[in-house]
Design a protein around this nucleic acid. Structure first.
Lengths: 337, 337
DNA sequence: TTGTACGCGTTATCAA
DNA sequence: TTGATAACGCGTACAA
């Protein structure tokens, strides 16, 4: 492994001069610059990143915390983040918390130990008071998840409003008994969604029925289970608000081999507008999130803070969503009425 | 930022002793150990990772190169890899090459610059001769992709055999004109698949027709385009071998709004057994890959090399696949015959 | 325009 | 059982 010292010796110059060439600094004669470049090539020299990090106190690496990559929403998110970060010369470390408080804390340690310059939290299961101290070690930005009491930049959409709109849509289709199906931990985000759901209900003078709430549904197979629960125990349910397209898909898949008709017996809305939701038969009404824009903005905001600390207010960046009405809720009965 | 020096001073001991405590080394009195632990807590001391890296020449980080995370196969792959790596205390850097030779090389540089200890290549677009020199800087393991001329560990399944079986299945269903649809660069892997495809054809005395080959289909929307090409230009086609479930899904989706019946007019096989392939109507016949096992083995092999260099032969680990026959190829006509 | 010398924070060696 | 000291490889005041 050739070091800067080796290059200097071979070129008959000092480490300093070599360093200047490496970092494109002025005050080096063209002739010597060439001699050094030659020497670097001859030796196959590459600057040692660990030494640079120690010296500069910067790693040019960020960590992205998220629950799990299996969820395509996060897959898309990190894909866009990696691309954006790479444009700025930053590496991205993937950190799957699996909604575990401990794992989330472990990954936050990356900031303290200086393995990363900053952190994006798209997973948030710990309370703010335990996260906050890490801010001393570097910037943190929330993406998707959010928390009012914190004072850091947040990039997300209005989940409350989105849930509200989806629920109103179900009600407009004539649903009288809507089940609320969600998954993952009780995060601030999921609370917001629930608020939107209930506020739509109360607008239609309907109560929120705790019995018709399921809080463990995260993927397709959970969706299948949900359908069986409903068709066995809650036969009066005629609409479902779902926190994910996967759950909605599992539900619809299972309904196909029953005598329940979707949307007429059961209207279903998903969330995220995954490819899946378009391809299902019937296609799934869902909420479109501007994933790429949110990812780009998040990385931008974080890197901005790294490059120019303290110049950015702890702003909220709220992105627009869109309710995509598809066949899983379009009731024919109604259009005839 | 407290350093080891600060801790030493506060505890009234030397850096060396503190270092011993940090690294759980013997030869420290219990009393002094406690004093040091106390001091560390008081100062909120955390060892600086950059300094450790420089000193130890190890980063405890690996890079995973892959084409893109949008493809759920790679999403699942890296999810499993991150989990496994995390068990060993290793960080994972995501590197999306987008099938670009340049990006692939750029990411390989991480090894040279000592930003990572080792690399997993699940993307492989460069020739072996340009990849090989990087082996000097650390171990590389192939996953999914492979290359006979190389001499490093490879973890994958038998794509040739898988493609062969899928094609034979189409032929058994009575297909006479099978289109070959693939995407991405001409990798060794895709060549293997094609070999399997052609060898099945020739076994049934059918020629490989270059005209009925499409090499740019990678996702759902490409699948839709493919269907239109076929229904407009190649109406004689009655079966399709597809390199991905996404393409198969797009094709099937588009066929639904035409007068083509699947599988009777057109039988379709996918690849990877994504959730999607099960949920489509009709469900998609596909090849199941043992993603998690492959991911685990790959990480295991790489870390093995990091911990005990030179103890492992450059073996191939070939995992079994499985042809899952579903409705997109099960012809009713035939079962009556 | 170039070089000397120090420090970034750790750990390993060796002597006490 | 403990500590002084020398690396690890690089960047940068400061001096020349």
């Amino acid at each position: 492994m050739a070091t800067i010292e080796d290059v200097a010796k071979l070129a008959g110059l000092s480490r300093t001069t070599v360093s200047r060439v490496i970092n494109d600094q002025p005050y080096v004669t063209e002739e010597k610059r060439q001699r050094i470049i030659q020497a670097m090539n001859d030796l196959g020299y590459v600057p040692n990143s660990s030494a640079r990090r120690l010296r500069s106190q910067r790693t040019e690496t960020i960590a992205v915390l998220l629950p799990r990559l299996t969820n395509p929403f996060f897959g898309n998110l990190i894909e866009a983040m990696e691309e954006k970060a790479s444009e700025w010369g930053y590496q991205v470390i993937v950190c799957q918390t699996h909604d575990s408080k401990k794992k989330e804390m472990d990954y936050l340690q990356l900031l303290k130990t200086k393995q990363v310059d900053g952190i994006i939290m798209a997973s948030l299961v710990n309370d703010w008071e335990v996260v906050e101290p890490y801010l001393e070690s570097g910037p943190i930005v929330f993406c998707n998840e959010y928390m009012d009491e914190s004072c850091i930049p947040m990039v997300h959409m209005d989940h409350k409003q989105a849930a509200y709109e989806a629920t109103v849509h179900l009600l407009e289709q004539g649903c009288k008994q809507i089940a609320y199906v969600t998954g993952g931990p009780e995060s601030h985000l999921s609370k917001e969604r629930r608020k939107g759901f209930t506020s739509a209900l109360s607008e239609y003078n309907l109560p929120f029925i705790e019995d018709m709430t399921i809080d463990w549904a995260m993927d397709v197979s959970d969706g299948q289970k949900v359908f069986h629960m409903i068709s066995n125990e809650f036969t009066q349910v005629d609409g479902i608000f779902t926190g994910s397209d996967e759950v909605a898909a599992g539900l619809i898949y299972e309904a196909a081999s029953s005598d329940w008709r979707i949307p007429d017996d059961l209207a279903v809305v998903g969330f995220d507008n995954q490819m899946l939701s378009l391809l299902m038969v019937p296609s799934v009404t869902t909420i479109e999130q501007p994933v790429k824009q949110m990812a780009d903005k998040t990385v931008e905001v974080l890197i901005q803070q790294l490059l120019h600390p303290g110049t950015l207010p702890a702003q909220k960046y709220v992105f627009p969503h869109q309710l995509l009405i598809r066949n899983s809720t379009k009731r024919k009965k109604l259009s005839i009425q």
